[in-house]
């Protein structure tokens, strides 16, 4: 199972073919070149099919605004790539978490007072 945020998944699909259906009903089949945080997308070598499936166009370069997209369909190769990247990301997250835990433990052991010695207690400041 791929455990990855949608935009991150789309980033892994950069360079592969995707099919995008827009809210108007048209579909665009092309290579995903660029993607931004608003889901705006640049495609190249695009096959455009109209909503009724009757007319077709070939478009070299195309920009689709993110808010007009209904969905993306990714092909099986993109799925494999995404799975790998998701696993790498999870490993990195686990390593980060381990480091944080280790740092916490180090801080705890430094803050612990060793037995036998007494440290001067902090007196609350008296205001005149």
């Amino acid at each position: 199972m791929i455990n990855i945020f949608p935009l991150s998944l789309l980033l892994t699909a950069k360079g592969s073919d995707v099919v995008i259906e827009v809210k108007a009903g048209d579909t665009y089949d092309g290579k995903l070149e660029l993607l931004d945080k608003f889901m705006n997308v640049k495609l190249t070598n695009v096959k455009h099919t109209s909503k009724d499936g009757n007319s077709f166009h070939g478009i070299k370069e195309l920009l689709i605004k993110g808010n007009s997209i209904k969905y993306f369909r990714l092909n099986p190769d993109a799925e494999k790539k995404a799975q790998e990247e998701a696993e790498i990301y999870e490993q990195q997250q686990q390593q980060k978490q381990q480091k944080l835990n280790e740092q916490k433990q180090q801080r705890k052991s430094q803050n612990q007072k060793p037995r036998g010695k007494s440290y001067p207690q902090k007196q609350p400041q008296q205001r005149r």
Partner: peptide, 11 residues
């Protein structure tokens, strides 16, 4: 069958 897809939340 549609395999792997990303659906935009506002739809």
């Amino acid at each position: 069958n549609a395999g792997l897809q990303v659906i935009r939340g506002d739809t």
